[in-house]
Design a protein around this nucleic acid. Structure first.
Length: 473
RNA sequence: GGUCCCUUCGUCUAUCGGUUAGGACACGUGGUUUUCAUCCAUGAAAGAGGGGUUCGAUUCCCCUAGGGACCGCCA
């Protein structure tokens, strides 16, 4: 028995044709966690051989998003297009070994074939017309097709799905070199996986059929076949395939509403994988506990509430210095920049600013009155004459004692509430509008404290001035 | 249509033949709180259907139904 342990090498192989997908992020996470767990390597390969759709901006986006998620790969990213020479080389070998052949069929001929099959109601696969051509060096454009097995069955020992058996004749003679002399995905992926010494291919369920094609290439070249684990796809809330229109399909969609990377990672980890009753995993625990055996077999739906709830948990447990940094970065990226002079105030008041928040966006909105105060008439109009009178009383008393504290303020409010037989709400609500520009937000005392006496009084004074002017007009 | 895969509370999931089928999110109720939120307590909520195998099936097998993926000279 061979007891030499093979080094685990996994890879994440996105194509730069769009922003990093939430499913892709999970695939990357699983590959990374598995490699870490086994003390192996995790590689990043950019599959950019579709020159029409691949874009540099997407490449950057994917790289940056993985970094944001703190998923780190070993070595430099492998750029698939840089390895084309090697792919062609293998195609030539396959041709020499009689495992592949040139196919001179034109698109028109193929279309005709397809139509004929359609009329006869037979499922279409290439007719293999060129498989046994006598002359193989015609001066005509050609593609290279792999000679798929025609008899027998193949069993894929999938690490997640178990044994999957298919008849070999259901795999057609697939193209491995296009007529523009560029290798196709299945060929490139197989060659790269071999050259990168990938031990475990962990990827989405949608690649399952490709495994059968890639395995045949491995066999034809007499290479050691990697282990495969095909993880079920992530579905949208209504059970359909996630589409770009769902606006929860890319990592960016979560980032821009202020989901923390830790929370998204935790969510993704638990989506399709579990460890007993555990819900919250630190990074160390994720690495220590992750395994392929506990990956579920069925597809899972996204639950936005769960992500937000998880985010809330992280928001509240995160070190507040770090949280403040995250908030500043978030605001700079997606909202208006928060000036340095407000950062200290926000940091100090984080305990209540983050209280009702589930996302960074919530914290941002809660603290907006600190760095971006604006009192609109529409809000002012919500305040009635009696309430204005009360605010005047408060203003007067506080102005006479500019060093007022919580107790002093509370006594004033209590007194008014008692005297006028009103509810706290009747005074709290309008006061909040005056101080923050919105009827929603933190508690009144918290607002006073966070703004400081001077700023609070200044805002009230400005309001009263405005009211006076409005009355005069 | 062909090939393949999947099926436990609304959602994510636990259960490796014997459980009052457990947890989490969301939801309901109660308490704490000036409000909201937090927090605590508590409640409702599931084995798709039908056949087998077995002393016993959510668990193993088959069928049906439902859902999904793939079926490109895209990756």
């Amino acid at each position: 028995m061979n007891t030499i342990k093979k080094t685990v090498i996994t890879r994440f192989a996105p194509s730069p044709t769009g922003n990093l997908h939430i499913g892709g992020a999970r695939t990357a996470l699983f590959n990374w966690l598995f490699a870490k767990n086994k003390g192996g390597k995790f590689l990043l390969r950019i599959e950019d051989t579709d020159t029409l759709r691949s874009k540099k901006e997407y490449y950057d986006q994917i790289i940056n998003t993985l970094k944001w998620l703190e998923i780190e790969w070993n070595d430099q990213p492998y750029i698939q297009s840089k390895n084309i020479e090697s792919h062609i080389n293998i195609i030539n070998k396959l041709l020499e070994n009689n495992h592949a052949y040139k196919c001179y069929c034109t698109e028109e001929e193929l279309d005709k074939e397809k139509k004929e099959y359609l009329i006869k109601k037979i499922p279409y696969s290439y007719s293999k017309k060129c498989r046994n051509l006598k002359e193989v060096n015609l001066q005509k454009p050609f593609v290279v097709r792999f000679k798929s097995k025609e008899k027998g069955t193949t069993i894929l020992k999938d690490l997640v799905q178990g044994d999957i058996e298919i008849k070999n004749n259901t795999i057609e003679d697939f193209v491995i070199l296009r007529n523009d002399k560029k290798p196709t995905y299945n060929l490139s992926a197989a060659v790269d996986d071999y050259e990168m010494k990938i031990s475990h291919v962990i990827r989405g369920d949608d690649h399952k059929i490709n495994a059968f094609k890639q395995i045949q290439i491995f066999e034809a070249m007499n290479w050691v076949i990697p282990l495969y684990a095909h993880i079920p796809l992530i579905h949208s809330k209504d059970g359909k395939k996630l589409s770009k229109r769902d606006d929860v399909s890319t990592v960016e969609d979560y980032k821009k509403i202020g989901i923390l990377p830790e929370a998204l990672r935790n969510y993704l980890l638990r989506l399709g994988w579990s460890h007993e009753n555990k819900e919250i995993f630190t990074l160390e625990e994720s690495i220590k506990l992750f395994n392929i055996e506990n990956i579920g077999k069925s597809p899972s739906k996204l639950d936005f509430e769960r992500i937000k709830s998880l985010n809330e948990t992280y928001l509240k447990s995160l070190d507040e210095k770090k949280l403040t940094e995250d908030l500043i970065n978030y605001a700079n990226n997606y909202k208006t920049e928060i000036k340095d002079k407000y950062i200290e105030t926000i940091y100090k008041n984080l305990p209540f600013l983050k209280n009702k928040a589930k996302t960074l966006e919530d914290i941002y909105n809660n603290s907006i009155y600190i760095f971006s105060y604006n009192l609109e008439n529409k809000e002012i109009n919500k305040i009635n004459a009696n309430q204005i009178e009360n605010i005047k009383i408060i203003f007067k008393k506080c102005s006479d004692n500019r060093d007022f504290d919580y107790l002093f303020l509370k006594n004033i409010l209590d007194e008014i509430i008692n005297n006028k037989k009103i509810n706290f709400k009747d005074i709290g609500q309008p006061l909040r509008i005056v101080l923050t520009g919105s009827q929603f937000g933190p508690g009144i005392y918290d607002i006073f404290k966070s703004l400081g006496n001077t700023e609070s009084l200044k805002r009230i004074e400005k309001f009263l001035d405005k009211i006076d002017r409005n009355v005069k007009n």
